[in-house]
Design a protein around this nucleic acid. Structure first.
Length: 321
DNA sequence: AATCCGTGCAACCGCCATTTT
DNA sequence: AAAAATGGCGGTTGCACGGAT
């Protein structure tokens, strides 16, 4: 047989915690510690589930927590680590003293994701959205590419339209605009369209055109060069195509250091170029290996068995869903 | 003044690995 | 060894609040 239940489900209170409950929990933990969450609510006189008490304590009541705004430095750290470890919030939070995984997760979902998207960077892959579209064009055969592109455009439509209407994209493929809609691919239906729809159509036409002209495509895949060893690098150290990277997408008027190099250094550079990401991760490696912290599958990503920095760039990026 | 809408955040839910009986 | 609870984690929800209409 197993153990006794953690709490009586019927008598458990849910919802917002009152100051009195907070006081009871805090004072009990101050005296007895957090050894057994099952007993804490009972002994502290709380009609709460032990799990609820644990969450309240770890996410809000703990005295070492910061409750203020996230600093630029903290935001940069989150973005950089997220580009490597993805949504492992506890791992990221462990590098931000006083912040909880819930804090980091909320901040990411409410602020940072939007911030990156506004900069033209896909918050999942940390690649420029424009690169993703080109990647679709180079990776998939035209029918699938067209569908994927449409899906991608669906995901980022609002942001794309915002960017495209605010700042003209220097598509060489805009030449394709001279081609009457639908005539080159026969795929897209046209008709009465407002300005936004026209923009989308232009993107679609450009993409279809790119698919049909492999020479052009290579221009739009600057992040995946392959070195002599066959290792795929995100960006060559210098390339004319690099200007296609989101330098032109940066937040206008946003002079904060945050907006600089989010993609160009941190998330799109690896291999030969060791940018700030590697510095911060080297520090992280030490801390994590000292603390013996492990990720969920039980394997420390920073352990000597798995040398993160030796991974090719594509392995550093979160895979495209 | 009332309503709507977007944002931020606390809390809950469900899953999984580990621990305990 | 098996069953069940615990603890930890990420995803999601719901509410409070403030600004816009």
């Amino acid at each position: 047989m197993g153990r006794v239940p953690c709490c009586e489900k019927e008598n458990v209170k849910k919802g917002q915690w009152t100051p009195e409950e907070d006081n009871k929990l805090s004072s009990y933990i101050a005296q007895h510690g957090t050894r057994n969450w099952r007993l804490i609510p009972k002994n502290a006189g709380l009609q709460r589930c032990g799990k609820s008490c644990r969450l309240r304590w770890t996410n809000y009541l703990r005295p070492d927590l910061k409750h203020g705004q996230f600093s630029d430095m903290e935001e940069q750290t989150i973005v950089k680590l997220h580009s490597v470890v993805g949504n492992r919030w506890s791992l990221i939070a462990a590098q931000l003293p006083g912040r909880t995984d819930n804090d980091v997760k909320n901040h990411w979902n409410t602020k940072l994701k939007k911030k990156l998207t506004d900069m033209g960077i896909d918050p999942v892959t940390h690649k420029p959205i424009s690169h993703l579209l080109a990647e679709i064009a180079t990776t998939w055969a035209p029918p699938q590419a067209a569908h994927l592109a449409e899906a991608a455009l669906g995901c980022f439509k609002d942001e794309m339209l915002h960017l495209l209407t605010k700042k003209r994209v220097d598509f060489q493929l805009q030449q394709a605009n001279n081609v009457p809609p639908g005539s080159s691919t026969g795929t897209y239906i046209h008709g009465e369209q407002n300005e936004k729809d026209g923009t989308v159509e232009n993107i679609k036409r450009g993409l279809s055109r790119a698919i049909q002209q492999p020479d052009l495509i290579s221009l739009y895949k600057p992040w995946s060069s392959t070195d002599a060893a066959g290792t795929s690098n995100c960006f060559p150290a210098s390339t004319s195509a690099f200007q296609y990277a989101p330098l032109s997408f940066g937040n206008e008027g946003d002079g904060s250091s945050w907006s600089q190099g989010i993609c160009t250094e941190s998330t799109c550079t690896a291999g030969e170029q060791q940018g700030p990401l590697h510095e911060i991760l080297e520090e992280t490696e030490e801390e994590l290996s000292e603390g013996g912290k492990e990720i969920r599958n039980g394997t420390s990503i920073f352990s000597s068995d798995s040398v993160l920095w030796d991974l090719p760039c594509d392995d550093l990026m979160n895979p495209i869903v």
